[in-house]
Simulated scan of single mutants.
Amino acid sequence: MPNTYFQFKQFRVEQDKCAMKVCTDSCVFGAAVEVADAQRVLDIGAGTGLLSLMVAQRTKATIDAVEINQEAQVQAAENFSSSPWRERLHLHPVSLQKYAESCQVPYDIILSNPPFFLSSLKSPDAVRNTAKHAGELLFDDILLFAQQHLNQNGKLYLLLPPAEATLFRKLALAHGFKLAETIEVFTYRGGKCIRHIQTYTVSAPEAPATKQFFIREEDKVTYTAEFATLLREYYLQL
């Protein structure tokens, strides 16, 4: 049975009410996004609030988090209120579409680990389906929102499996965004690429940068030096 919480060095993520638990690739994503100079950040599909909390730890930005699932709303609110950055974390318990109707602020950073597996079979668990499959939150909704509310020099960050990342890139181009960088995340050296961390901007180089990031060494147990460096400010065991 999964733990009811995940303890980080500076905060705890309670997760008993959420279908999607804290996972390693999300932690890599939260630590990898560049937010040092951001004044305002939006987390789309907050879930437990993990990404918002990770960003809050290393920036002074005001962070808005949008979440449609009622159980996740309660969980994120609890995690925000018990964190050291509660004054800068603002949960909006609505859909992104609804939030777009009233949003009046521009964002320096928009990030999302959205529902994915567009082409895969859905599980019988309706809550988990919503968390893992594009349903209430569609890729076009994210891009439309970013068109209207991302600063001219802002960045849009996505964490997606490779196939869905390819699809999102095509849609992003149609919406006027360019892929600036892809970080290919591998479970271990010699293993499978499980996720792409994509960075989009309005203006980007003709050839986007591509990097590879390995979570573990070939023994599938030992964390790589790059993982340890990236997560050292968050993980208790590093």
Rank of each mutant, 00 (worst) to 15 (best):
A46C: 05
N3T: 07
D43F: 00
K192G: 03
N129A: 07
Y234R: 01
G49H: 05
S26C: 05
V202S: 08
I109A: 10
N3H: 11
Y200K: 08
W85L: 04
Y235F: 12
V94H: 11
V66F: 05
R169P: 00
I44D: 01
Y235S: 03
L230K: 08
T210I: 15
D37Q: 12
E87N: 10
K211R: 15
D108M: 06
Q152D: 15
Y200E: 04
L173C: 10
H92P: 00
A65T: 00
T201M: 14
G30R: 02
K178E: 07
L53P: 02
G45A: 05
D125I: 00
P106T: 13
L144Y: 07
C103V: 03
Y223V: 09
Q39T: 06
E217V: 07
A61Q: 03
G154Q: 08
V74K: 11
T224N: 09
L111V: 10
E71V: 02
D25P: 00
S102C: 12
Q15C: 04
V22C: 03
I63T: 07
P124Q: 08
A228Y: 05
N151S: 15
R88G: 03
T59S: 13
V28P: 02
R58T: 00
P161S: 08
L50N: 00
S26Q: 01
A134T: 11
V41K: 05
T210C: 14
G47D: 05
G176N: 02
T210P: 01
T182P: 00
S123L: 10
Q73K: 01
P162S: 09
V74E: 13
K170M: 10
F116Q: 09
H175N: 11
E14F: 13
A36E: 12
A65H: 04
D16L: 09
N129F: 03
K60N: 12
A165W: 04
P106S: 14
Y235P: 01
V66R: 05
K9A: 13
E218T: 15
L121M: 10
H175E: 02
E181L: 13
D108L: 06
C18F: 07
L238S: 07
I44C: 03
R195E: 01
Q104L: 12
L167N: 10
S52L: 03
D16Y: 12
L173N: 11
L230I: 06
N113M: 07
E206A: 14
A209H: 13
Q57W: 01
S82I: 05
T222A: 11
D25K: 03
P124Y: 09
K155Q: 14
V202N: 09
V185A: 04
T201K: 15
H90Q: 10
S120V: 05
P106W: 08
D140A: 15
Q7H: 12
D141T: 08
L167W: 10
F227D: 05
L121K: 15
R216Q: 14
L42A: 00
M54W: 02
P205Q: 13
A56G: 06
Y5L: 09
V105F: 08
E184Y: 04
A207T: 15
K98Q: 15
H90L: 12
S120E: 15
Y235V: 05
G190E: 09
L118C: 11
K178N: 11
E14N: 14
G49R: 08
V202L: 15
V74Y: 08
Q152F: 10
R88C: 02
A134H: 06
D25N: 06
P2Y: 07
T201Y: 03
T48Q: 02
V41R: 04
